[in-house]
Simulated scan of single mutants.
Amino acid sequence: MADTQQIAKLFKELKIGIGEVSNISGVSQRQLRYWEQKGYIKPIDSSSGVRVYNFETICTVFFIKGKLDEGYTLSAAYEKSKSAYTKSKIIRKFFHNLVNGVEITDEKAAYGKILLGDNLHIDNEDYQVVGIVDDDGNHFEIKKKK
């Protein structure tokens, strides 16, 4: 199985031409070029005359298209895409190092516990915050550190 560095490399180096992006997203090539002119998306390289996009840009195209389909204007859809990107970046930073703190409690049901850190100190006692995914949904427990 690929490790996180290999997956990150895949997402960083994945390149898809404008025709395929248009086919999979439902956004015409003409619209994509217009979005480029507005500065909403940017090809990796178009010097050869062929526009090629990276994974991040393709995600932006899908996000904007979704917001347009919901009735947003192009500029509002783009602004929402910037906000969503920033939020996802914060979430990725927060969870980046938590993978080693994940305990699978039911693989088939995809239930488990996530150690969110030894970040509570109350009355000279140390506590851990644990995120839990189980039959009750998502919730947290605060446990005294052993």
Rank of each mutant, 00 (worst) to 15 (best):
C59P: 06
L98F: 11
E13K: 08
I122C: 05
H96Q: 13
K144N: 04
L115R: 01
A76V: 09
T60P: 02
A2L: 15
G137I: 01
E56D: 13
E70T: 05
E79W: 05
G137F: 05
G101V: 02
Y127N: 00
N54V: 04
A8V: 11
D106V: 00
T73D: 07
A2P: 15
S75R: 10
G101C: 03
V129E: 00
Q29K: 15
A110V: 14
G39H: 03
R30I: 08
K12G: 09
E13H: 11
F95H: 03
L14W: 10
N138M: 12
K146R: 11
K145A: 08
N97E: 14
E141L: 03
I91D: 14
K87L: 10
T73E: 08
Q37H: 11
I132S: 00
P43A: 06
K93S: 14
D118L: 01
M1Y: 13
Q128A: 11
S88E: 12
F95M: 10
V52I: 15
L116H: 01
G131S: 09
N23P: 02
H96D: 15
E103A: 09
F140W: 02
T60K: 10
G137K: 04
I122D: 07
I104V: 15
D134F: 02
Q5F: 13
D45F: 00
S88F: 07
I64A: 01
Q31Y: 08
L116Y: 00
D136Y: 08
L98K: 10
Y34H: 08
G17I: 07
I122P: 04
R33V: 04
F94Y: 12
I16R: 03
D123Q: 11
A76C: 06
R30N: 12
I142D: 04
